[in-house]
């Protein structure tokens, strides 16, 4: 499982988290990806970096499905805190509560945080 808790662009965490998931998928690992806290902003629709000379990597989240990564989770509380709903996101995800996430984390072999 890879847990992403940082907004994109401000730090390198988001991109690193995305790359580690793609790398794991290339090695056929069974990966779940969680977006939590500011990490939910990574999936925000409509990102456009043309005026800020940094690469917009948000289209790559849509490649996760073609890489075979299908278990994407977003924590409901993080979304609500930020006034976001599923319609604001660039990919289909499963919304789960913090309590459900606690249980999901317990089932993992390895958890990586970004």
């Amino acid at each position: 499982m890879c847990i992403n808790r940082r907004a994109p662009y401000g730090t390198i965490y988001a991109l690193e988290g995305l790359e580690v998931v793609l790398m794991g998928a290339a090695f056929e690992q069974d990966i779940s990806v969680v977006y939590l806290d500011d990490g939910v902003y990574q999936l925000k629709k409509g990102q456009d970096t043309t005026d800020s000379s940094i690469k917009n990597f948000s289209p790559t989240y849509r490649a996760l499905a073609s890489y075979g990564v299908e278990k994407l989770y977003v924590e409901t509380e993080s979304m609500e805190d930020r006034g976001l709903s599923e319609h604001d996101l660039i990919v289909p995800v499963k919304m789960i509560s913090g309590a459900e996430l606690t249980e999901l984390m317990e089932q993992q072999d390895v958890i990586l945080n970004y």
Binding site: L22, A26, N56, F57, P59, T60, R62, A63, S66, Y67
Partner: peptide, 11 residues
């Protein structure tokens, strides 16, 4: 163009 990333051979 679509995903801003190269696929792997498998993909």
């Amino acid at each position: 163009e679509e995903y801003k990333i190269s696929p792997t051979v498998r993909v």
